[in-house]
Design a protein around this nucleic acid. Sequence first.
DNA 1: CAGGAACACTTGACAGTTCAAGTAATGGGT
DNA 2: ACCCATTACTTGAACTGTCAAGTGTTCCTG
Lengths: 160, 160
Amino acid sequence: MSETRWLNAEELDAWRNIAGLALFLPTRLEDALQCNGLNFFEYSTLAALSDAPDQTIQMSSLADLANGSLSRLSHAAKRLENRGWIKRHTSSTDRRVTLATLTKEGYAKLVEVAPAHVESVRQAVFDALTKEQLLELGAICGTVVQNINPGWPPWEQDES
Amino acid sequence: MSETRWLNAEELDAWRNIAGLALFLPTRLEDALQCNGLNFFEYSTLAALSDAPDQTIQMSSLADLANGSLSRLSHAAKRLENRGWIKRHTSSTDRRVTLATLTKEGYAKLVEVAPAHVESVRQAVFDALTKEQLLELGAICGTVVQNINPGWPPWEQDES
DNA sequence: CAGGAACACTTGACAGTTCAAGTAATGGGT
DNA sequence: ACCCATTACTTGAACTGTCAAGTGTTCCTG
């Protein structure tokens, strides 16, 4: 029933740039990884595992850390396992639970790929901005992300 | 051969928020459209057509305007045509060229969906920010986008 | 005015994501 | 102790986008 709040010229201009970022940045980052045989989600999965004690995390937690659904992770884990970069085994304490572990080869792959990934982030974003702009951008994006997706990220739990 | 320029804590923090935006914003916008039976690319396609003289654009230009590959548009156009929202016909002056036209039904669909889309943009981004923050965000994103993808957007051609 | 390069688009096969359904294990209530 | 809801994960089908190849048309060059 209420009137649509259309965008004025100023807002439209800002919006185009924001949408442009959301449109092109993912592709750019994927490209840098794809040529190393990984997509961004697979990379996030390996990275999350490498930070965990014993390089081991339960599937559902890992899905959260890598920002994907459990189903998505399950498919990705099959690919990563086939390539020998992770292993899955049932937990001994709760046999519903599957634990994923980074293999030696998986860690090696991560170490091999990480520099190129970081460099692509720098080239795409950091190198175009002053330090002030970067921090400003980070802060405002943080505000928006909290608005869209409160309670992210899944690490940094509030433990009061 | 060169040393990897890793991110320090400050940079990592900013980066997480930027990546978070690029990760969650598209999904959020898609969701608002999906429940109206369109994805973002299809919406952009219809929107671009509605702004064109005679509601008609050549496929390859339309692909640019909607920010997708020609192949992607070709698949999407088939879906849109099947649902009766656009029509395609060969150009009379150059028979390699296919012209896409928005139908009356397509225009009606766009008018039906647009308010919800704009509202989702407002809710996701605009409502969380002050006007200053919005303009600042738009400007910085513009800088990054120009860095990643110089010569975008395809409209706003420099005609010197 | 051929012949081939370039252009405009379409198509089919493939890979990754989502969604709904399926399997298996656990725990809580009676 | 048993049932059943819940939890944890996997799987297969449907769908979308990408890539490479294919078709048809036009332009250019000798």
